[in-house]
Every structure is written in C-alpha cells, then in structure tokens.
C-alpha cells in the first residue's frame, strides 16, 4: 500500500508541474503580459518599463522557474486588476466554489446511484429504459442553456429562487442542479453496469438463497462492490465540476473561483489566470489520486495488480 501510494503521489506531482509548465507557456505564447498590464494604446516606452519592472524581459525558463518556486512557497503573485494578491483572492473565492462542487456532486450521486441500482435490478424494464433515456437527454443538454431556462422558470415565471448572488443557501440551489445534472448520466451508467455484474455473482445467489431480505442483499451485499468504480469516477467528476464552474458561476453571479477566472480572463489578468489554472489542475490531480487510493483501500485486488 505504501509503495502504491508513493508511486501515485510522485506521478501526481509530476503531472501537476507539467500542466503548470504547459499552461504557463501557452498563456505566454498567446499574449504579451506587459501589453496586457499597460493597457491598449500605451506608449512603447511604458510597455518596456513594465516589461523590465515585472521581469518579463528574462528568458521564459527563468520566469517559469521563478514563478513555480514562489508558487510552491505559497506566493502566487499579485493580481494586475484586483487590488490584492492572488492568494488572498483564492482564499476568499475557493470556499464558495468548493461548496458548490460538493453540493452538486452530492445531488448528482443521490439521484444517480439509486436510479442506477433500480435500473440494474430489472434490466430492459420500463424503469431501466426511462433511466437510460434521462441519461441520454442529460448528456445533450447544454449546461448554460439549462441554467437560463431554470432562471426563466424558477425566478421569473414562478419566483421562488433568486436568479443571482451567493448570500443564502437558496442562491446555491439552481447552480447545484445545473452543475450536478451533467455528472448524473456517467454515474448512473457506471452504477448500473457495476450492479449488473455483481448481481450475477455467486455470493449474491448464496445470500438470496439463505433467505436474506432482498433489500439488504441489494444495498449491503451488491451495492458495496458495485459502487467501487463509482468512487473514483465521482472524484474525477468533482474535478470537472470545478472546471465547469467557470460558466455556471458567471451566469448565476456566484462569487467563486469560476467567476474570478472569468473576470481575470476578460481583463487579461495573467497572474490570476495562471494561478487558477494551476490550482484547478492540482485539485484535479489530487482528486484523482484520492479516488485511486480510495479504490485501492476499498478493493484490495487493485493493490496487488
């Protein structure tokens, strides 16, 4: 287990560093940060001054190494638009996005797992077909459009929920639904496939034959084994949700990292954009790592393989 853990951790760190390098180079290739800071129409001399002042005249490798070293020390630089350090901005915004992500993931699991179990109990039944239809439709629904429809329905036609902001729990309901529904099809399908496999196993037949309550067999004996792949999928989905928060938070004006990303992108605030890409990548890598470890812990066979 320790060996497994160390291997995965090393790989995760390597991936995180590589991703930060790629995004650093990509953002630098796409735009000149000195011009972005000086603003359009600035004099050439001012741009040169800024270039020297911020150190943009040094070789890219040196700039990257410098940036990474300070990032590791917790210094993510200073926003060129907001009057704050990037670390302060993130500390303020990250809890909102994480809350939203957790709500959305819970919502998704609470709906999708029971649906997947029920679909697997009677394959090809009406319920199974209904669940699959919902999954197919869900995957095709553009999330930003779904968000606008919910606003029209629940804030305009039947004004029961606030359309934007993040003051109360009610503000989180619509974003949770919009962010959560997108993961449902994947979670449901995986639960269904897992249950179908497990329900054919000998130990399920044994449990049934010795007269155990069918619900106990289903949820205690079968689901426990079928749910293992769903655990790591959920970790990955949580990562996607953090990325998807860019669109959803900007629609619902939720002051999380997603909206911060959107604001800093439209203001060419490179240090903030760079830091957010790094933080999201690290979170994603961390989440997949946790998913892998949970899997190995839940299913000893993976550790050996």
């Amino acid at each position: 287990m320790t060996r497994f853990f160390v291997q995965r951790l090393g790989l995760a760190l390597l991936v995180a560093v590589f991703v930060s390098l790629v995004s650093f180079l990509m953002l630098r290739a796409a735009g000149d940060p000195a011009i972005a800071i000086a603003g359009e129409g600035a004099a050439q001399a001012d741009i040169e001054n800024i270039r020297i002042q911020y150190g943009f005249d040094r070789p890219l490798v040196v700039q990257y190494a410098d940036w990474l070293a300070s990032a590791l020390a917790g210094d993510l630089g200073r926003s060129t638009y907001f009057n704050a350090t990037v670390a302060e901005l993130l500390a303020e915004r990250l809890p909102i996005t994480l809350t939203l992500g957790l709500c959305a993931l819970s919502f998704s699991i609470i709906v999708a797992v029971p649906l997947g179990v029920l679909a697997a109990v009677r394959p090809n039944s009406l319920l199974d077909r209904l669940a699959l239809t919902i999954a197919v439709f869900g995957q095709a629904l553009p999330n930003f459009w779904f968000a606008l429809i919910l606003i029209v329905l629940l804030s305009v036609q039947f004004p029961i929920l606030p359309p934007s902001g993040n003051e109360t729990w009610a503000h989180f309901v619509m974003p949770t639904i919009v962010l959560g529904y997108y993961s449902m099809p994947a979670i449901m399908r995986l639960t269904r496939t897992g249950m179908l496999q497990v329900l054919r196993a000998d130990y399920i037949r044994t449990a049934r034959a010795k007269g155990l309550d069918p619900l106990t067999v289903l949820f205690k004996h079968a689901l426990r084994n079928a749910i293992i792949p769903v655990v790591s999928l959920s970790a990955v989905q949580f990562g996607y949700m953090l990325g998807g928060s860019v669109i959803i938070e900007s629609i619902f004006a939720l002051h999380g990292v997603g909206q911060l990303a959107w604001e800093s992108i439209s203001r060419a605030d490179l240090p903030t954009v760079q830091a957010i890409v790094l933080v999201l990548a690290v979170l994603y890598v961390g989440l997949t790592l946790i998913g892998d470890l949970l899997n190995a812990w839940l299913d000893p066979r993976i550790r050996v393989a």
């Binding site: 790989l11 991703v19 995004s23 990509m26 796409a30 990303a261 992108i265 060419a268 890409v277 999201l280």
Partner: peptide, 23 residues
C-alpha cells in the same frame, strides 16, 4: 500516457477561454 494524464488534468473550459481571450 503521461501526456494523456496531463491533458486530462487541464481545466478545458478555463484554458480554452484564456487562450481565446488572449489570442
């Protein structure tokens, strides 16, 4: 495989938005 893992760790919407905005 490493490249694939790295690509999967990049937030697609965010990177696409940032590059489109800058270019």
């Amino acid at each position: 495989m490493f490249l694939i893992t790295a690509r999967l760790s990049m937030p697609v919407v965010l990177v696409a938005l940032a590059v489109a905005a800058l270019l």
